[in-house]
Design a protein around this nucleic acid. Structure first.
Lengths: 331, 331
DNA sequence: GTTGCTGCTGACAACGTTGTCCAGAAGGCC
DNA sequence: GGCCTTCTGGACAACGTTGTCAGCAGCAAC
């Protein structure tokens, strides 16, 4: 910047004014400075700028996901990136792996770099690290899971209604013995979806049979085993609701292993690629991770521009995508 | 920091020394400062620190992907994140969508924030923006595609050998009419894979029939249409090699639509989830995006620590995963 | 000619940190 | 006691920017 000022024979401040498009610079000087900028290949230093600037904005936000490689997280990530890019803001992404320690470490790293705001899928455990951030006055938006910090903005999916809808759908096909597999109870969405299962049974006037419910099922292998056990037991289910992505995959593997995928109905929560190419194509309750990310980012930027105010909680609806596996009648 | 110094009744510099674990501070003072840090909840400001520091490191790197939501990119992203995290470095991720303009914009945004280095999947077009970065002395590692900048490090997949292997595999099952679908010729990997196809035919002593080759096929729909056309034409292929992920999906859709998925052999390039649950399970040439990312990140950090030197080009091997669709014999 | 206004420009300090350098205390030796 | 060395701690400037304010033209009005 000094070199640019010297070359254009103006002061540092004038260069700053031209670079930041402030007015009050004569067209003649402006042109001279711009030429010098081109010639030298000057790049403004945003870290120095944010240090000095009065609003102290770094034009960067932190995005804390479960795992950047997981399709749900990465679709959300992309939507956040797009909203941020429109405001020339960059995104630091990090994976917590549902681990409170990693979560804390990443939050600290974000804070050290003075990000303007945070979008967080909170790990199941204690969010004390998050409270710390809020004390520092950094806006946070929680996504996918309602946070224990009730004064922060959040965007969640209507898990409960989605699962209830799936149960009613199966009941509509005359299923009475419907099994439900839920993820770890420490995960907010897992318990919400279980509530939805209970709601759906109630609405369909089917009594809840605890033997058809498996909770704290985590990952493909355990899901597969749980389904095999249910189907081999007495009074097996005629339909299955899988409470999470990997559980759905585990269920498919179990059904294929027994060659009963055309007899036992299956509805999965959360859509996945190629669900329509399987045999039978898999009916799912689809979430819209892109919409989740988009809304979260917009809430965050509204907060950044608008300042404090009542926390907003947005709930995004789900869609039941009928593909075949959920429309199988009991044998 | 001023408050901490005041509370501990020491100078700013002493606080700085404690925070940065420099020696030459008495244990007594150190304890007093640490207590004050805790009490005040002081967070060092990394942007100010990197500004003043002599090495000028921001502890952040830029990662330019095709699309953070695409499984290949996001698996690579995760691996980069893990390597970076081990060095308490954060990752700015961005999606170019194969668009040179977006690529340039992101590179500029990275440069403005003075990232320590860049890992880039270069978009097909002109990499002039990239040369700019290099002039600024910022280390760059190219991933997945060999860059036109030959003096930069790169990590690529052995596309050519992978496809040749697939062709020989099909030839081993007595296929003589093997079709090949390639992505846009502007993408380096697409032309490499086409070369591999030619190599494979040559090695198997099968003459190249141009009517069985479709290049510049981009996305699921066009791939599906191309396959339908090939299969409806005279002298249709008995086996298909799909040169890219989405092309494989398109091919599966076409074969399923014609109910010929058990007659026509198929090998896809790049693995995908659930490939083993399809009917028939899909044989693929698997890349290891995680390995690609890990190696790229390690090259970058080696460069950051070691300074300039001969550019290194690492090539990662592929694996042929036999699942069924590639082991179908011609009818 | 003086005053007051407006429009443009530059000098200077400051953002939060660290590198450099120097001062003062403590300890050992003659 | 005087001198040298070692260790500890602080004063100060600087990193690359921007906010504040003052100065200096040029012009109109008296």
């Amino acid at each position: 910047m000094r070199d640019v000022a010297a070359l254009a024979a103006v002061s540092l401040k004038t260069v700053s004014r031209v670079v930041n498009r402030e007015d009050g610079v004569s067209p003649e000087l402006r042109a001279r400075v711009e030429e010098a900028v081109q010639l030298i290949g000057y790049r403004p230093n945003l870290t120095a700028s944010s240090l000095r600037r009065s609003d102290r904005k770094t034009q960067a936000i932190g995005l804390l996901l479960e795992d950047v490689a997981n399709p749900f997280s990465s679709a959300l990530h992309r939507a956040v990136e797009d909203v941020a890019a429109a405001r020339s803001c960059l995104v630091f992404a990090g994976s917590s792996d549902e681990d409170a320690a990693k979560e804390g470490e990443l939050l600290r790293a974000f804070a050290h770099r003075r990000v303007d705001g945070l979008i967080v899928i909170p790990a199941g455990d204690d969010p004390s690290g998050l409270a710390d951030e809020r004390r520092q006055g950094r806006p946070i938006v929680f996504v996918d899971r309602r946070a224990t910090l009730h004064d922060a903005d959040s965007v969640t999916v209507d898990n409960r209604a989605g699962v209830a809808r799936a149960v009613r759908h199966l009941a509509g096909f005359r299923h009475r013995r419907i099994a439900f597999l839920a993820d770890l109870s420490s995960i907010w969405t897992a318990t919400e979806r279980y509530q939805g299962f209970v709601d759906g049974l109630l609405e369909s006037q089917i009594p809840l049979d605890p033997r058809l419910v498996r909770r704290d099922v985590h990952g493909i292998g355990p899901a597969r085993d749980a389904i095999l056990e249910l189907l081999h037991g007495p009074d097996p289910p005629t339909a299955i609701v899988a409470g999470q992505n990997l559980i759905t995959i585990g269920a498919i593997r179990a059904l294929q292993a027994l060659r009963r995928q055309r007899e036992v109905a299956l509805i999965g929560f959360d859509d996945f690629v190629l669900a329509d190419l399987l045999d039978p194509p898999v009916t799912v309750v689809a979430q819209d991770p892109g919409e989740l990310g988009r809304v979260a980012a917009e809430l965050l930027f509204a907060r950044l521009e608008g300042g404090p105010g009542e926390p907003r909680h947005v709930v995004v609806e789900t869609t039941l995508v009928e593909r075949g596996s959920g429309e199988i009648q009991p044998g």
